[in-house]
């Protein structure tokens, strides 16, 4: 029941793994009241400038935990920080996060 789900304040970190052409992307996501509360991403992908990943993570905190909003948040930072990530697209990060959410 969605009502009960919304009241459930206990949040658990879930893991998602997705392999892009550029490498493995592991996501650890905690959701609270339908929003991403905490998120970490690790893996052997490439992304320049490297520090921009932390900006993506900051942007994602508080984002609604659905594919569209997650993708939008990531794309926004890609544009703002002029991120280049050979073999890895914003949608690969989204996919990894979605796998965590669906875990």
């Amino acid at each position: 029941m969605p009502f009960l789900k919304a009241l459930n304040v206990e949040s658990k970190t879930k893991q998602g793994i997705h392999k892009s052409k550029g490498g493995l992307i592991r996501s650890f996501v905690t959701v609270e009241k339908g929003n991403i509360k905490d998120i970490e991403i690790s893996g052997d992908f490439f992304l320049f400038p490297e520090e921009a990943l932390f900006k993506i993570l900051e942007q994602l905190k508080g984002t609604q935990a659905n594919r569209e909003e997650i993708q939008k948040s990531i794309e926004r930072i890609y544009e703002k920080e002029r991120i280049q990530s050979p073999g890895t697209l914003p949608s690969d990060f989204t996919e990894s996060i979605m796998k965590a959410l669906e875990a």
């Binding site: 490498g23 592991r26 893996g43 052997d44 992908f45 490439f46 992304l47 490297e50 990943l53």
Partner: peptide, 29 residues
Amino acid sequence: GFFQKAELELNLTNCKDYTITRRISGGGI
């Protein structure tokens, strides 16, 4: 690699006699 986590990638008890560090570029171990 810059984005990797030691405790996820490594069997740390078996790495005791290894020097471990991280580089500023992405990619794997």
